[in-house]
Every structure is written in C-alpha cells, then in structure tokens.
Design a protein around this nucleic acid. Structure first.
Length: 325
RNA sequence: GGCUGGUUAGCUUAGUCGGUACGAGCGCUCGGCUGAAAACCGAGAGGGAACGGUUCGACUCCGUUACCAGCCA
C-alpha cells in the first residue's frame, strides 16, 4: 500500500522500543525522510553506545546525506563530540528540514526518544536568552562554594514565583532560571508564556507513542547492551585515543561512564553491562513519563514480542493519518 | 568437632549503653521537566533470622536452634 499523505509523522518512545525500524518502514511506504530527535545520536563517532542506525554518508544532488537502508536520515552523526548541542539548536535545525521535506512532497518522519527536542520542535521554546557558559560557570562556582540553597535563595529574591516551582536541589534548573533572569533583566516567570505545554499540535501531524511492557523492554535492553558492548568499548577507546576528554558533552551520555570504568579496569565487563542496563531502564521510565504527558498522541502499547510488527504498525499509523487529513 | 564474631528494608549497611527505627545508598513504584535533557530533580512503599525466658516494657539482656564468616583441630 502507498499513501498520499505528507503530514509529518512523529514516533516517540523509550530507548530500544523500535522507533528506528518503524520510522524506516514508514519512510519506505510514504516516500519519506527521517529526522532524528536524539540528543546523542547527533554526535559523530558515537554509534554502538547510542544505537545509531547504521548508515553511510552520500552526496545526493549536491547534498551530503546520511543514508540508512536507502532512506535519508537527518540530524544524526553531525556534531563533534566535544561541542555542546541543545534543544534550541535542534529546533532551529529540524524545523526547516521538516518544511523542506514537506515542500518536496515527501513525508517527514520524526523519530526519537529525546522528549525535550520533540517538545522544542513542535511546541517551540519561549523567547529566552540562550545559554551563557561564563555565567553558568560563575553560578556553578557559587553553588559549590555556598551551596545549592544559596542559589535558590537568590532566585527567590529575584523571582519568587519561579523559585516556588523549582526545588532547591535541582541546581541545573535553578541556574538556568537565574541565567535567564539576569540576562533578560526580567524574572523568568514573566517570560514563560505557557506554550511549553502538555499537548502536541495534533492538527499538524500524526503523533505516535510506542510503549512497551516493562519486562519486555528490559529484555530488549539487556540483549541490545550485551550485543553492543564490545563494539561500544572499542568505540570509546577510539574516542579517548582521538583526544576527547572523559567529560566531553558526548561522553556524558548514559553508559559511557560505565564503559570507561570497564576500560580502565575499575569494573568487570559483566558489572558494566548490569549497570548500563539499570541506568537504561531508569532512563526508559523517565522517557515514558515524559511522553505520557501527551494525552492526544496515539498510544501503541506493546505487550508481547509479536506486537512489534513494523508493517502492521505502519498500516495503523497511516490509516490514522488519512482519517485526520 | 571447638573457639570467636555476626544475623537490621529486595541488596549493601548505619545506629540504638532496654522505653515508640530522625537512618543511608542502590533497587522498586509514581511524578516533575522551556537552549546540559541519555541532563537535572521531587515524592512514596518496604525493616529487627526462629523459638523461649527475664522485664511494666526487649531490636537492644539471657538461653536454645538455624544460617554466615574467621581462627583452631
């Protein structure tokens, strides 16, 4: 079957839930192109540790494209591991790509597990000052010296409403709120418009949330981690050999610290795998919590291994898309 | 077989000189999230090996049993 829809399709879900396979199936059916929404697959040289889909860079009509099984796969393998990347940058890159794909009569398929990026792309971020590394360093030093409560107290003095919404322990969000308030010269809470909400614009696209039974997902994560581990270790050795520091933004990704502990002999291979599975599962829980907020997304619950059938799932999704058109 | 030490939440453990376990980390359950988000954070459930004794009262003292560790045979 082939469908004449070009409304974007967004596939969300925890890690190891089969988003890539489904996205590729949808791309083949609809003459589509995939846009990744993944804060770590965006980095070059990270593959085994991020389950980046295997692909190759090709020049197509003068454009450099990462091709996976014949499908263009955007916003993957493009950023240097020592560079910072963030939701604002992602939205600024993904939106024009999505529009261009649609304009060419093709279907954009957004697939990823980074909820904040999907949120930034579809609901947009408020007009706020971007990150200021120097200010962050200052604030971070202050927190180190006087404690998190001191920073929170400072925020409370400048913006009581924001302070009430952010727990003192959440140093990152406290610092960000202070950063915005100082840079903008106005309290953050006055700059938040509420657009960063809990609903996706269902009239603009099809949104799918793949949610696996926990035990099954755990099995998939175990299998995937064990299978990838040796390549992962080799990949990490390579990154360190290339001179990337252990605290490079890319290496702050889940699992890499454990792999580095294994490489340096601090823990065994099986300890590393166990630990990675554990952190992956708690990450999956957080992802499901995030995506669960979107009550208007199409929830696909996978309760047995046979429920994951990309062909059949694609049928369901495309049918829903046609109805909505 | 003997001696010594141990047995506190699912796991690793802290502490209680007899008076309701301020416990902690991990795990588990739930949640939050506006340019670090695979980040960062919040809430909750869960506990004194077994049996008997002393005592107004025992996780804390005594005895027996079970199991663990170390040392000696």
């Amino acid at each position: 079957m082939s469908f004449a829809i070009s409304k974007p399709i967004t596939i969300m879900g925890a890690n190891a839930s089969g988003k890539t396979g489904l996205a590729l199936e949808l791309a083949r059916r609809t003459d589509g192109e995939v846009i990744s929404a993944d804060s770590k697959q965006i980095y070059r040289h990270l593959a085994a540790g991020t389950s980046k889909p295997a692909g190759t860079w090709k020049t197509v009509l003068g454009r450099e494209l990462y091709m996976v099984e014949g499908v263009p796969y955007h916003l993957v393998d493009t950023v240097d591991p020592k560079s910072a990347y963030d939701a604002g940058t992602y939205a600024a890159q993904a939106k024009p790509l999505m529009d261009a794909i649609s304009a060419a009569g093709k279907t954009p398929i957004i697939a990823g597990g980074t909820g904040m990026y999907i949120q930034a792309l579809w609901n947009g971020l408020d007009q706020l000052p971007p990150a200021d590394p120097d200010l962050r360093r200052t604030l971070s030093d202050l927190a180190e010296e006087k404690g998190r409560e001191a920073l929170h107290a400072e925020l409370a003095a400048l913006d009581p409403r924001a302070a009430a919404m952010i727990p003192p322990g959440n140093i990152q969000r406290v610092m960000r709120a202070l950063e915005i308030t100082k840079l903008a010269g106005r309290p953050v809470s006055e700059l938040w418009t509420g657009r960063f909400g809990n609903a996706l614009p269902g009239h603009l696209g099809v949104f799918v949330f793949l949610k696996w039974d926990k035990e099954l997902l755990s099995g998939r994560i175990k299998d995937r981690t064990a299978a990838a581990f040796d390549d992962w270790a080799e990949e990490t050795r390579g990154l360190l050999a290339m001179g990337y520091p252990e605290d490079a933004p890319a290496l702050k990704s889940l699992g890499y610290p454990q792999v580095m502990d294994f490489i340096s002999g601090r823990i065994t291979r099986s300890e590393a795998i166990h630990s990675i599975v554990a952190v992956s599962m708690s990450y999956a829980k957080r992802q499901n919590t995030w995506f669960g907020r979107y009550k208007n997304a199409m929830l696909i619950e996978l309760r047995s291994p046979s429920d994951y059938d990309p062909g059949r799932l694609a049928d369901r999704i495309l049918l829903a898309g046609e109805r909505g058109t």
